[in-house]
Design a protein around this nucleic acid. Structure first.
Length: 697
DNA sequence: AGCACGCCGACT
DNA sequence: GTCGGCGTGCTC
């Protein structure tokens, strides 16, 4: 006993986190050979190779200490330091630990995936020792060059008086001495929010050590955008971080951000977990965008984590949007965030006039109303461009048999297969949820009727109808199907910019960021989907989308209009849209949310379960709810009944969900903190995951 | 989450 | 006789 006690005090113990869904941390011993080369404290923040079960795996050292509760015979020594060149900073370890706690995951599940695969790959025992991954990656990072910008710097635009006012308010918050602050920049489409960000970035980057992070929605990170940034910051290394990049490229950019070699980092949500060298400013562009929410694995919010990041490095964060999320708008109204507004377009360009077209009871087979067709004809006749917005890709949402009412139901999902037309002109039925597809049947599979008809329309059919209506017009289409082909989207957009397209047809992919100089007409074909959806956030998203798509029109001063086809023109959402009145719409939304006890006035977490049988998933959630009820004896949380998800079956897996809600975030998280470990302990055939602050219910 | 161990059906 | 099905137990 004596010997053990003295051993345990003299021995260095390392706390290590690992990418496994068990809480940890795990204690390991430091072998003598490694202890001799450096103080144990120097290993904190380093990646190490560990013996794990029967094999080896990667860990991150979070603490060096001298005692442990782990039985001596169970305590193993770390094998080696994997990447001595990389020490993760303390603030970063705290940020990932905070995120892990907030999303109720193990710290390793947040920390380790944030490091590029290339830098955390286990060494292959090929015998010969080669350069470390870090060293090899250093060579790659050194080769990073400026983004190709076609034309030389187009110069710095002059600021409008609104932009001057916004910057005058923003710049004093940027110095390091000002610490953490959140600013919401609300500016109508075309008001020059980007110019305000860029001035703030330029201001911060005057300090040769400083770095700025610009977060963009998933589809915003394009080569063109990077090129335009490069033109603005000639000679400066701009790193890009997004999930689509190849391992090597990603690692090189990441390393440039970590060493400080890259001064400006542009990234999608995952970039928030980069251990920046000296971050001094965070900008979240289009902060309301749903793509900031990670929908797989750890369901984190890139926007919320951007705020957490800024608070950990003690710098300013700027959230920008024409249609801020209700969460951010409410925070700004309450003074928790500084609010800056850009109420007018640059150059006092008029916002487009919005007209509502009542299509109730009309069944135009091509989906376009008479006024819309007339407006398109007029627009194209004048040599201007029209954008037709339809949030539905494919040819038609469903194939239908008029004789027996058969519909093209997916075999694996509770959804219809969508009729598509491939490049050979052949019709196929494709499920947008499980991707299963088959040639469209020539005759009804149920009754043999050969007269099958497509119901409704998608972008493909709309494109076809438009070509019939306007045989002379040059039509371009942009949706995810087009985007699948390499370079196809870019080609259509380039043609549109060059004035070689008269009519652009597309889904919401077209709604964001693009700036078509000749565009004077926007037609929204079906504005009503989502208006009466079960998800209380659906109208908020619809409003944002419509504002966004309307904003494409007339950005360069052409008299422009937006036609919105709807069956309910009297709906207040459309009234606010016509008036370009975000504040009024947000005000009524927030009042409703407060009345109904919904976010941002309550806090939610969603427990989702999947099983082959719906009853099994529901039963799991019922048991979880019961457990939660006993843990929340004081009744601080509202525990709803488990229900099937709106899309109950995907790829033959049945899904259900349990909503937990509280007026107190603290109480909700206290409950989750007790509930989750118990759920982990129970052995169940049900797959489940927790979504804190769910965006889709 | 992986991954190994472990105990019961259709194959050489 | 064996390959392999996925149930359950563990990872400092």
């Amino acid at each position: 006993v004596h010997e053990q006690a003295s051993l345990s005090v003299s021995r260095v113990i390392l706390e290590v986190v690992v990418d496994v869904p068990i809480p940890g941390p795990f204690d390991y011993g430091l072998p003598q050979a490694l202890a001799a080369t450096q103080p144990a404290q120097a290993l904190v923040g380093q990646l190490v190779l560990l013996p794990w079960a029967k094999g080896q795996r990667l860990g991150l050292v979070t603490k060096a200490k001298t005692d442990t509760d782990v039985a001596p015979e169970k305590l193993k020594d770390i094998v080696s330091v994997l990447c001595p060149e990389l020490t993760l900073p303390t603030w970063w370890m705290q940020l990932t630990a905070f995120a892990a706690q907030y999303y109720h995951r193990s710290p390793g599940e947040l920390a380790l995936p944030a490091i590029p695969k290339l830098l955390r790959s286990l060494p292959k025992n090929t015998g010969r020792k080669t350069a470390t991954p870090w060293a090899r990656n250093t060579a790659r990072a050194a080769k990073l060059r400026a983004w190709e910008s076609p034309e030389a710097s187009s110069g710095v635009p002059e600021l409008t008086s609104d932009q001057v006012i916004a910057l005058d308010a923003l710049l004093p918050r940027l110095p390091a001495s000002s610490g953490f602050s959140v600013t919401l920049l609300r500016g109508v489409t075309g008001s020059g929010k980007t110019e305000v960000y860029l001035r703030a970035v330029a201001h911060i980057l005057q300090d040769p050590q400083a770095q700025a992070l610009l977060l963009v929605p998933e589809i915003g990170l394009t080569p063109q955008f990077l090129a335009s940034l490069q033109a603005r910051f000639p000679g400066m290394l701009i790193a890009a971080l997004n999930s689509g990049m190849a391992d090597g490229e990603r690692a090189a950019h990441w390393q440039a951000a970590v060493t400080g070699q890259a001064r400006l980092i542009v990234g999608t949500r995952l970039a928030v977990f980069t251990p920046f060298h000296h971050l001094r400013l965070v900008v979240v562009d289009e902060e309301h965008d749903p793509s900031y929410k990670q929908a797989e694995g750890v369901h984190y919010s890139g926007r919320d984590m951007a705020i957490a990041l800024a608070s950990h490095v003690r710098c300013a964060v700027v959230l920008g949007s024409a249609t801020p999320s209700m969460e951010s708008w409410d925070a700004a109204q309450r003074g928790r965030y500084h609010l800056l507004e850009l109420p007018d377009r640059v150059g006092k360009v008029a916002l487009p006039t919005v007209h509502l077209i009542n299509v109730r009871g009309q069944c135009a087979e091509h989906g376009l109303s008479k006024p819309a067709i007339d407006a398109i004809r007029d627009c194209v006749g004048k040599g201007e461009q029209a954008l037709i917005f339809l949030n539905r890709r494919g040819y038609a949402p469903v194939l239908h048999c008029g004789a027996c009412s058969w519909l093209s139901q997916c075999n694996n999902c509770s959804a219809y297969r969508v009729l598509h037309r491939n490049k050979l002109g052949r019709y196929r039925l494709v499920c947008h949820h499980c991707s299963s597809e088959a040639p469209a049947p020539r005759a009804c599979p149920d009754c043999g009727n050969v007269d099958l008809s497509p119901l409704g329309q998608g972008t493909q059919k709309l494109e076809e109808s438009l070509q019939v209506l306007f045989p002379q017009a040059r039509i371009g289409r942009v949706d995810r199907d087009v985007a699948r082909k390499r370079g196809a989207t870019e080609a259509v957009l380039a043609a549109a910019h060059a004035g070689e397209v008269d009519i652009l047809v597309g889904t919401q992919m077209l709604a964001k960021g693009h700036h078509f100089t000749g565009l004077s007409l926007v037609v929204v074909v079906n504005a009503d989907s989502g208006l009466y959806a079960a998800d209380f956030r659906a109208p908020e998203r619809l409003f944002a989308n419509l504002m966004q798509v309307s904003g494409r029109a007339g950005r360069t001063g052409l008299a422009s209009k937006v036609l919105v086809q709807t069956e309910t023109p009297e709906h207040p959402l459309f009234t606010a849209l016509v008036a370009h009145n975000y504040a009024a719409y947000a005000g009524t939304q927030l009042a409703e949310r407060q009345q109904a006890g919904l976010p941002p006035y309550t806090y939610q977490a969603l427990l989702r379960a999947q099983a082959k049988e719906l009853a099994v998933a529901i039963e799991f959630l019922r048991a979880a709810r019961e457990l939660a009820q006993t843990l929340d004896a004081a009744g601080d949380c509202m525990l709803y009944d488990p229900v099937p998800m709106p899309m109950v079956r995907v790829a033959n897996i049945e899904r259900a969900q349990l909503l937990l809600e509280s007026r107190s975030r603290r109480h909700l998280h206290l409950l989750l903190g007790q509930l989750l470990p118990q759920l982990h302990e129970q052995r169940t055939p049900v797959r489940w995951q927790l979504d804190v602050d769910p965006q889709e219910i």
